[in-house]
Design a protein around this nucleic acid. Structure first.
Lengths: 156, 156
DNA sequence: CTTCGTGCAAAAACTTTGCAAATTG
DNA sequence: CAATTTGCAAAGTTTTTGCACGAAG
């Protein structure tokens, strides 16, 4: 559904531009490229993975790795992007504007899948209430071995 | 309750020694010190924080930072320790041997309650299976405001 | 006594910073 | 134009590795 996607992207872009304006920062080709890449490639990426994605998909952009780091930090501070890291790997980034979801992480290769489960969320709310807490948010990560690594029979 | 604590620690120690024996590794003063520190200081620590904790609490140990890294990696592979990291920080380590529990954390005062919920755990297992994962463990933290802080009407 | 572990220092990997030139508002 | 950003390379950080000596089984 390209129509909806464009609306979403435009919205994201506006949000980013608004952050930039508020802080007297400039909207550059590089920053746009990074935002577009975040949008076009849903998933969790290391800074270096973004760098390679961009070099491959926008060969003319000649973007530097330092700009990737600087822009991801900016986006993280602006809460447009979320950073997370598990196990052996470094910090990975993903767009933060998605509807809420949790993660399943492969302890062997670092693969991250997303899921959402209403019944768990309902139960969480109940548990919080039983303890007198007002629930604001949560973190849930399931760790295991992904199908690929199970097949490869690689120990941890 | 020192009696119970000692039983727990002895159990942990046995588990560690057993892993070492299985892999023809040696039980050293440094490895013991690190395990003891993990046990005595519950929480989540960066390698460097362990290094400083140990230097402070066992000034005679003269342990090297490389040994901290090597031992934490070993303990992680042996599943005696769990590594996780969020946000700005690097990888943090905590003991993994407790009976399983999750946390409710007050965002205002830091109070931590523990809980366990079979129905959520069952659902997690199902979700992992649906994604082809073999589930080994999980992390779940609920964040909110505790009763005391709600009464005090303190903002976050 | 043989094998493994340690500290140290060097190397590798990862991230940030300084700077002159280029771009943006 | 004035101010910010960029790529590059250099400088910081963090983590791992090689090695000779010491310790454990």
């Amino acid at each position: 559904m390209p129509f909806l996607e464009n609306i979403e992207y435009d919205h994201l872009l506006e949000e980013f531009k608004s952050v930039l304006r508020k802080n007297s920062l400039k909207f550059t080709k590089q920053r746009e490229t990074i935002l577009k890449t975040l949008y076009n490639f849903p998933g969790h990426f290391l800074p270096e993975e973004f760098y390679n994605l961009i070099k491959k998909n926008e060969p003319n952009s000649n973007i530097g790795i330092a700009t990737i780091y600087r822009t991801l930090n900016l986006l993280e501070e602006s809460e447009i992007v979320t950073a997370l890291s598990f196990g052996k790997n470094g910090k990975k980034y993903e767009l933060a504007n998605k509807p809420h979801h949790d993660h399943i992480i492969c302890k062997n290769c670092g693969l991250i899948l997303e899921f959402e489960d209403k019944s768990i969320e309902k139960r969480q709310k109940e548990i919080a209430q039983q303890n007198g807490f007002e629930l604001t948010n949560h973190i849930m990560q399931l760790y295991g071995i992904c199908p690929k690594c199970k097949r490869k029979k690689i120990g941890i």
